[in-house]
């Protein structure tokens, strides 16, 4: 393998890992606060289709991004209403959100399938992008990838260093105690869910406006679900999330590598790789039940109401 191929692989790995990183960050914050939202796939698709339609009709990519984020938040607010206010089962509500989001995005986007759009172009930073191996990976990406770096920094700092992070963790571990201390549990959880929706919407926009600028039904191809597995992989720790997202990004571009080294494997079999990798990772990481118990937010997925 020559250095150019490696540099390309690194570049594509980060590109491919970015949507995963974005959704997974949202879900991480959500789960840290004790809420399991299985609706990531649905929110992501809805964000993707809204972002695409807005960008194509108005000609403004950024307006597309903003409305995609709002679209994700809109769906997540439905989740918050049903799962947090009405106290419905979070697993079922998340599934409903995904089914609804998949259907809604296909319905809304039916007339927009296959239309061409010029998406976000890479911004090549002079000098820095010439660094061997990692130059293109870090400094020749499009603006949304750079944005994901910045967002990661913000999320990591918030969770690890700030008082807000402490509050999120407290609410996710023991909502009763948090409430007894006067922390607004439902408010914190609702914000976390909305943040998750915003990130999923942004990830969707990245798919339809930058990664492959177009709209196709189910174009997220399970990334929302993989992101959920990523959070388990990361044992709810933010730095491992970054590592995991790019590892999965790498798994999804393995077919490029295979082509690069001249392997002829049917494309359908190669397309399975990220999903197989997800299962393998889940197996390796969940094997030790204790470890999951030690790191998972204690109240994850459990409905909670004040005054009980």
């Amino acid at each position: 393998m020559d250095i150019d191929l490696l540099s390309n692989i690194f570049f594509a790995t980060v590109r491919c890992g970015t949507p995963l990183l974005l959704v997974a960050m949202g879900e991480l914050v959500c789960e840290k606060s004790g809420v399991l939202n299985l609706g990531q796939e649905g929110m992501m698709l809805f964000g993707a289709v809204i972002g695409f339609i807005v960008a194509l009709s108005t000609g403004s990519l950024w307006l597309g991004v903003v409305l995609a984020i709002l679209a994700g938040m809109l769906l997540s607010s439905l989740f918050a209403l049903v799962a947090l206010v009405f106290n419905a089962n979070q697993v079922a509500t998340g599934l409903a959100l995904t089914i609804f989001g998949v259907g809604l995005s296909s319905f809304v986007g039916a007339a927009w399938v296959g239309k061409p759009l010029t998406g976000f172009e890479p911004i090549v930073i002079p000098w820095l992008s010439d660094i061997p191996l990692i130059g293109r990976m870090l400094f020749a990406q499009d603006i949304l990838v750079y944005l994901s770096f910045a967002l990661f920094a913000v999320v990591a700092w918030t969770l690890l260093k700030s008082r807000v992070g402490l509050i999120i963790q407290a609410v996710g571990e023991n909502p009763n105690a948090a409430s007894a201390m006067g922390l607004p549990v439902l408010f914190v959880r609702t914000l976390a869910v909305l943040f998750g929706g915003a990130m999923a919407g942004l990830a969707g926009a990245y798919l339809s406006l930058a990664y492959t600028p177009m709209w196709a039904e189910n174009m997220s191809a399970g990334r929302g679900w993989i992101a959920l597995a990523l959070v388990v992989f990361a044992s709810w720790r933010v730095w491992r999330l970054l590592l995991g997202a790019y590892l999965f990004g790498f798994a999804s571009i393995l077919y490029l590598v295979a082509q690069g080294v001249g392997l002829a494997i049917p494309s359908n079999l190669l397309a399975m790789l990220p999903y197989v990798a997800t299962i393998v990772v889940l197996v390796l990481l969940s094997r030790n039940a204790l470890r999951t118990r030690l790191y998972a937010p204690v109240s994850l997925g459990q409905p909670w109401q004040s005054g009980h």
């Binding site: 299985l38 697993v91 191809a221 399970g222 679900w225 993989i226 959920l228 597995a229 388990v232 049917p266 359908n268 079999l269 397309a271 399975m272 999903y275 197989v276 997800t278 299962i279 889940l282 197996v283 969940s286 094997r287 030790n288 039940a289 999951t292």
Partner: peptide, 29 residues
């Protein structure tokens, strides 16, 4: 995967959906 490795069945079963679909596509093609 669930009983032996404690892997979350929601995620494994949905991943197996994608794998099954690709297997099916591979065989019909």
């Amino acid at each position: 995967l669930r009983t032996h490795f404690n892997a979350n069945e929601i995620l494994t079963s949905i991943m197996l959906n994608y794998i099954a679909l690709n297997l099916l596509l591979y065989f019909v093609h």
